[in-house]
Structure formats: structure tokens, C-alpha cells
Amino acid sequence: MSAPAATHTPTAVGHHEPSKFHIYIQIAMILAVITGVEVVLVYTPIVKWLVVTALVLLSAVKFMFVIFFFMHLRWDKMFCTILFFIGLVLAGGTMWALLHLFGADAGKPLSAVVGLLLF
């Protein structure tokens, strides 16, 4: 397990970019706490829309923490962020469109009973 690297060794720490060890640990702790809060939140007797909004916001915060810190978008070129967000916006737009299309009364999927009657 202790085979040395051919070109660089762990002793040459001073010439590498600063370690992000503590940042990662702190973010992981924040993510774990947020997950715990989410689980507690669904059992809390408060208004439903408030819980849904809080859950969506907390998920978005977790999402952003992971992509900007763990996936290094914060330190990478802006083009990586733009490229990923193109896919993300398209996916979000598709979800929004589908949920609204099928949310309308006329667009509701046929129920099993109606489907059987038609065919």
C-alpha cells in the first residue's frame, strides 16, 4: 500500500496547491445536518406549502454546495459552470413543462379504469 509515486512524493507538500481538507469536512458536516433537518421537517406539524418550500430550498443548498465545492466549479473556469447549467436548465424546464402539462385537467393521464373502458 505504501508504494511511492514515480514523479511526486507526499513530502513535497509545499509545492502543491493549498489543501482543501478542512473546507471539505465542514461542507460534509453541513450537508449531513441539512439532511437531518429535512427528515425532521416532514414530521413537523406546520403548513404544507412551507415545508415543501423549505425542502426544495434545502435540497437546492445541498446541490449547490456539492457542485461548487466537491465538484470544484468554484475554482474551475466559468465555462464548466455554464456548460453544466445548460443541461440543468434544460432538465428543469422539461420537468416544469411536463408537470404543468399533466397538471392541467385535460392533460391528466388516463386512469387504469378509463383506459380499460376505451380499449
Binding site: P10, H16, Y24
Partner: peptide
């Protein structure tokens, strides 16, 4: 995900082990 981030951090500092 934390461990994966630490793996990347370690190799960026040349620490293979």
C-alpha cells in the same frame, strides 16, 4: 462524496497512498 473529494485533494498533492 466527502471521501471522493478527499481522494482528489490527496492526489493533487501527490499523495498516492
Amino acid at each position: 462524496s466527502l471521501l471522493m473529494a478527499l481522494a482528489v485533494n490527496a492526489i493533487q498533492r501527490g499523495n498516492v497512498r
